[in-house]
Each structure stands twice: as C-alpha cells, then as structure tokens.
Design a protein around this nucleic acid. Structure first.
Lengths: 305, 305
DNA sequence: GCAATTGATACTCCAAGAGTATCAATCAGG
DNA sequence: CCTGATTGATACTCTTGGAGTATCAATTGC
C-alpha cells in the first residue's frame, strides 16, 4: 500500500471523474486508472461503480474515502509537527539550574526564549549543586546553568556572563564608604563559603581569593548555596562574597560592597552535553550569545545606585 | 511522502539499529539508510542522533514514531474494513418490503442473512405498495420485497417463492368443509381486493381470477393492503383471497380455506436495480435461492393442520 | 593501538510508475 | 436507429526511483 494510491483514489472519489482527477493531480488519465485499479486489486474490493457513464463510489469506496481523507490529514499534520520540532519551533527544552543561577541574566533569557519560541515547552528545574551535573550526564536535562564549574569531557560550557564579586556583610559590620579599600578588611569576620558544597571547603574559590589577597579568615563556615549564605550574613554569622547580581535577592540586613583589588569575575555558565545537537538547545545558546553581546555585565557600582 | 518510508523509519526507530531493522524488513542495509535519510531531508528534520555508535531518536523522531505507529495501524484497519465491506462480510444492506411481504419466507430469510453476516447492518424498511418501486429507483433501498410485480427495465426480479392463494372469509360465512369445491362459491359476497392499490381495481389479479373462474363478485371493495383486507373480512365486510402464508397473521374471526380449481400461485418476489452489484445484494440473493431450493412452498393444506 | 561493528557512499540494475496512442462502451441528439 | 462525443480501459514505451553489491569511515571495546 502506497500513499500515492490513496491520494489518487481520493482525487477520483472527490471528482467522480478520472479525467478531472488526473488533471488535478497533474498526471495523465491512463496511469490514474491503472493506479486505482491496482488499489482495488490490492484491497480486493471494487471501489467505484463504473457500470454507468458517471462513476459512483461503492459502499467500500465510500468508507475508504473517509478513512483516506482522515489519514492524509493526519499524515500531513504529523509531518508538520515533526518538522516544527526538528526546526526548534516546537518541542521541549529542559533547563536545569543551580539555585544561585536564579540571579543574573537567566530569568531574562528564559523570558526571551519563551517569547521567541512560544511553542517550545521550556521546563525549568532547580537542582542542588551536586545533582546538576549528574542530571546533565544522565540526559534528564538538556542545559545546566550554574555558577559552579561544569568541567567534564562530555560537556561543552559557555559563559553567559562574567560578574564581579562584591562583599556581602551585615549592615552593622559595614563601615561608611561605598567601596571597601581592600578585601582584607573582611579578615576579622568569619567567611561563609558556598560555591562548591560537594567538594571540601579548602578548595572554595572564595577562600582561595581571600588567601591570594593575603589573609586567612578567622573562621570558615560552609553553606549549601548562596541564598543560605546570605541568610547567614543577615543573621550576623559572618561575611561572604557574592556575584553583583545577587543584589536582587539581598536581605535588608545585608549590604553589598564592591571592593578594590583583584576580582575573579565569577561566571554564570551554561553546560550542554557535546552529543546534544537538538535545535532547541542550539537556539537557546544562540540567544544566550546574542544577549551576552547586547547586554554587557553591569558594572558593580550600578547595584548601589 | 511514501508509506514505505514511514514503515522503514518505524522499523529503525523500534530496533535502533539499521542492520537489524533492515533484516526485519527483509532488505539490505544501504537502501534502508538511504530511505531514512531521504525521509529526513523530506521532512527537514534529523530523526536520529547518530553521533554515538548507538543511534537514538531525536525529539522530532520520537514524535514521528508515535504518529507513524498510529497511522500505520489506522491504515491497516481502514484497508481491512474496506476489504470486509467489499467482500460483503460487513457494510449495510437496505431492504424495503411492502406490508404483505411480512408473511411468508422474508422473516426467516432476514434471520438467516443476519446469522450468516452478523457485521452487515441490515436495514428493513416497510413501504406502501406505491412507494416501494420509487424507493428502489431512487436508490434509497437496495432490495425490494413485494407480492406486487416490480416490472421495470431497470430492475432484475427474482421469485422468492410461489404460494397458492386461499380464500379468507368470516367464520360465520364459512361452511363445514375444509376446502371449497369451487372459487365461485364466493360469488355471493363482496370481494375485497388489495394487491395493486395504486392501479384501478379493474386490473386487480384477484378480481381477474374470479372472472376467469366464471363469476363477477356482487361487489368489489378496495383495501390498501392485505392486513386491511383481512380486517375487513373479520368485520364481515366480504371475502378475499390471500397467500397461504397469511395464516400467520390471520384474525380469529377469519378462516382460510383452500379451494379447488385454478390457482395462480401468487409470488413473493425480490427486485434489485440492474446496476446494483453490491456484494451484500449478491449474497442476499444467493441466500434467497438456496432457501427457495431447500424449502419448497408449503402446501396449502398445511395451514389447516 | 587494533580489530570489529555499524552506518554512509558509490555505482549498477531492475521494477514500477508515467506518458502516448488507441480502443470500447455509454449516452445524447438528429 | 444511427452517429458523434465523452469517458474509462488497454497496450506499449520510457524514465524515475528503489534495491542490491562493494566499499569506506567512524566509533568502540579489548
């Protein structure tokens, strides 16, 4: 059974005239007659009553016509839907993000993507820092957005943006100035670290930064994520460093202060499995790159305005 | 788009292995790869992720697989249904009958047909004597069963059975004997005629029979159908002649009496348009012929037993 | 690093579909 | 009742496209 025969049959069933049907199909009449006859012998049923000059559908032909019409419509629809998904206009995109990625450009990016691709089902799932990479490896998500490094052979990682770090400290610790003259001014308070909760605190990049600035904090407190770290700061437990965009989620008891000196420009990065070449992924990443170009990282001072 | 490509694609989607899929389809692997590639370029979407040694379905492929599976099932079902109707195992058969055809072999015939072809929707519609032939001409029914003659160039007519006529008279008119010595014994009572209500009474075959037996009834009363005629007999309005099988519908005030002499053996006939070669019609008529052979008309005396 | 597996490619061959010419049957009109 | 027109079927040829064989390239597992 070939679709062509159904199409030919349907044309004849609608025109009830081999000549007109052939013209509509843009073929000659004899092959049309032949194909319909082949269809009839294939099914084993007369589809047309040719006893008069005006042909008519038999019962069997009438039923087949309805089926054929429905089938061809469904086929077109299936192809169109498949094409949409293949082009990235439709389908599904699963983005996992670690908690501290909620701040920064991700909300705007997802909004832009949804606006550009309203028929894609964008599934956003928060993950803990340790489970995000695993979800990406297992294929539970297509994209992983995180501030942690997603270094893995199987991943391709792009930076969404680079943000300077700023000091987060309780209001009552904070001095007058808008900017800390040096990061070492924080050395008297406990340092709250949170970036790699899975790994040991000793490897934390914030702690490493402090050491490179020439001091060791009096104490090091681990927190599972940035939000928890800011909570600890609000409670006066210590100080920490956060990306400047974290200001959006800052608690009233906390002030953010840029500081002079070396600033490692913490990155928000997006990871994707190298073997994932889904158009939805590709287009999301392209959108990321465009946004990154058009909207450079806000200067650290902006959040104090 | 050709069905073959969908079948090939589905095989690969299920096996996730071109070699095994090709073996299942009983073709070589290269043409299978080619056809799948052609399907992909036709749709304009990658259907398989071939980046690893183990191929996988893409989103688009996964969606197309579901559609293809459903479509192919529906196609098979459509063909099977069409085939059933074309063979006469399923479909619809519209039988019209005039009232007086309810008596005689029609009930048993329809029952036998329904038993033999349970999937055919047998539509039985009663018609008045005048509307039956019109319905057949218009194609509103496939078969017309009637005791009237359905003579028309466009019809093919077969006799279902021949039945002797018997006299129907009110109990109080009836004499002692089980059989009338002669039809002319009825000459003193009004004759009720009903066979051709559309045509004039003068052409009624019952009246003609009486005349050929050598008498004119004292009066001639028209009735629209046999049931009405028997009602008139029950009310003592006169006498009539009915097919012997009418005993089944006889009222208690009426007795049926065979009579000696010429009996025109009224026929129950079935008419069909010559251009109607539907298998349901053909098989119904074949059933009629078989029944007619296996069950000859009951002798008139039987109904008195 | 090498052998094995697996899908893609190049090329040939054949079958099936499409075109041309023509026939047969039906129907309308004189 | 005959004739011409219409319409679908048939015979034959040609071309397109699908299938087979041989082979290559890439990936994977030992």
């Amino acid at each position: 059974m070939e679709i062509r025969r159904l199409r030919y049959f349907l044309a004849v069933a609608e025109e009830l005239h081999f000549g007109r049907a052939a013209a509509r199909l843009d073929i000659a009449q004899p092959p049309l007659s032949r194909q319909v006859a082949l269809l009839e012998s294939e099914i084993g049923a007369e589809l047309f009553d040719r006893s008069r000059s005006q042909i008519r559908l038999t019962q069997a032909g009438s039923v087949l016509r309805e089926h054929a019409q429905r089938l061809l419509e469904q086929l077109d629809e299936a192809i169109e839907q498949t094409r949409s998904i293949g082009s990235g206009r439709a389908g599904r995109l699963r983005v996992g993000f670690s908690d501290c990625a909620s701040f920064g450009p991700l909300p705007e990016l997802t909004h832009a993507y949804r606006t550009r691709f309203p028929d894609v089902d964008l599934v956003l799932t928060p993950y803990g820092a340790t489970t995000l990479a695993r979800a990406l490896i297992r294929g539970e998500i297509d994209l992983a957005v995180s501030r942690q490094s997603l270094a893995d052979e199987a991943f391709r990682v792009e930076h969404l943006c680079l943000e300077p770090l700023v000091a987060a400290m309780p209001c009552r610790f904070a001095g007058e100035g808008r900017q800390l003259a040096s990061l070492s001014l924080l050395s008297d308070w406990p340092l709250i670290v949170y970036l790699n909760p899975g790994a040991g605190q000793e490897n934390d990049p914030i702690l490493a930064l402090c050491r490179s600035e020439g001091f060791d904090p009096v104490q090091c407190i681990g927190a599972p994520d940035m939000r928890a770290a800011l909570g600890l700061v609000a409670m006066g437990a210590g100080v920490t460093l956060v990306p400047s965009s974290a200001g959006a989620a800052c608690l009233p008891q906390v002030v953010l202060r840029p500081y002079a000196g070396r600033n490692p420009q913490v990155a928000l990065s997006v990871g994707v499995r190298r073997d994932n070449c889904a158009p939805q992924v590709r287009q999301f990443l392209e959108l990321c790159r465009r946004e990154a170009r058009s909207e450079p990282a806000r200067p650290a001072m902006a959040l104090l305005a």
